[in-house]
Every structure is written in structure tokens, then in C-alpha cells.
Amino acid sequence: MKPISFTSILVIVCVFANVSNAINSVEEDIGSGRYVIEGRVVPPEEQEQSNWQIQTRIHVNGGEYIGFIKEDGSFAIHNVPTGSYVVEVVNPDYMYDPVRVEINSKGKYRARRVNYIQTSQVIQVPYPLRMKALSRFRYFQIREQWRMTDFLFNPMVIMMILPLLLIMVLPKMMNDPETKEDLKQITNLAKMSEMPEMSEVFTNLFGGGTTTKASKAKQIKKRQ
């Protein structure tokens, strides 16, 4: 009979522990050196996101312990032993600052900012935690908008418009006769190296095609 009665005492102890937990809303030691990290996530400002609670999780030490948040944004991570933990709010769209929570062997909590470079620096934050969204993640590049100036300074457009200006506008601006004479000379010169007439091009292509080809072939031979 003895061992049985012993176990019954144990069971009663266990029952009492559980009852007291329920009453004290679980903040202190549960008995085996396990603690609860508590806090609240403030929902992001823009509330167009329906059920953001589902999207948001609490990671302790990168997923060693995972917490889920309730409708009102509160969360509790149960059964955490003493130690130092990085508590992160994971949401795919909003950025939250992580917090380092330290639980000492007496069950005292300390929450401070995470600083990976100066690890001994302590900037305390209130506990129970209150996590606020910093900003929305910007994952994407922004496409350039169509603007008139962009179009005008486009090299191809400049290539079209500038010669037009040179040809049409410039001669009219210069009414001075001397320059006109000069221009005439230039145009006369240009006539020599003028672009071929369409008809000439075609006659060359079809009529004299063979000769040009032959001459080309000769040239190639020479090069070789």
C-alpha cells in the first residue's frame, strides 16, 4: 500500500499547483523552473489586413519556442526555463523590433533592446512586452513613372528632334547673306556625297548587282 499512497500525495500536489496557476494567471514559477514570457503586439496602423493575428507569430530564439497571439494581440510563451532569449514578432508585412528577455534563477524578468554589436549595453524596455510595428517592409523596387521630361531627354527622341531643329530652324534664324552664301556652298558640297535616289538604289541593286558583288569578292580576296 505504501507506494500507492505516496503517488497519491504527488498527484494532489500536482492538482494544487494547477489550481493555483489558474487563479494567479500564471506569472510566477510553475514549480520546475519554467516561466512565462508575456506581452502584447500592437496591430499595425493600417488596419486593412484582416486577421493579422494569424499572420503574426512570436519566435523566441529563432523558433526554439513559438507563441501565437490572441484576438486582442496578447501573447504568452509558456514553459521557458531561465536564461536569455531574443523575442521577435514575425509578420511577413510589418517590421517589429526584437527584444531580449532575461529571466534569472529567482524568476525576475528584465527586457532590453537587442544590440548585437555592443552586447553588454542595456537599454531597458518595459515588461510585460509591448511590441509595436516599426514600419511596413519594402520588398519591391518602385518602377519609374512616365514623365514628359524623361521622354524629351530620351536619347532617341533627342536624336530625332535635334537634327530637325538644325535643318529647319537654324537657316531661318540666320538671315545674314554672307552665311547664306556659305551655306549654299556647303549644300553644294553636300550634293556630291548626297544620299542616292531611290530609283538609283534599285537600279544598282537589280541591274548592277552582279558587278558590285564581283568587286566585293575581289576586295575580300585582296584582304586575304
Binding site: T7, L10, V11, V13, C14, A17, N18, N21, A22, V26, I30, G31, S32, R34, V36, N51, Q53, I54, F68, I69, K70, E71, A76, H78, N79
Partner: peptide, 22 residues
Amino acid sequence: LVRGWDSTTGILLWEWSLTLQD
């Protein structure tokens, strides 16, 4: 850990922890 979830949205409704002595 005993947790209750809303079946439509999946949001956590309650949770409580239970430790067995044995």
C-alpha cells in the same frame, strides 16, 4: 500546452499549460 482555436479564422482563443509531476 492546451490551446483552443477559432475554427473559421484560426485565431488563438485560450491556452493553458499543464505539467505532470511524474
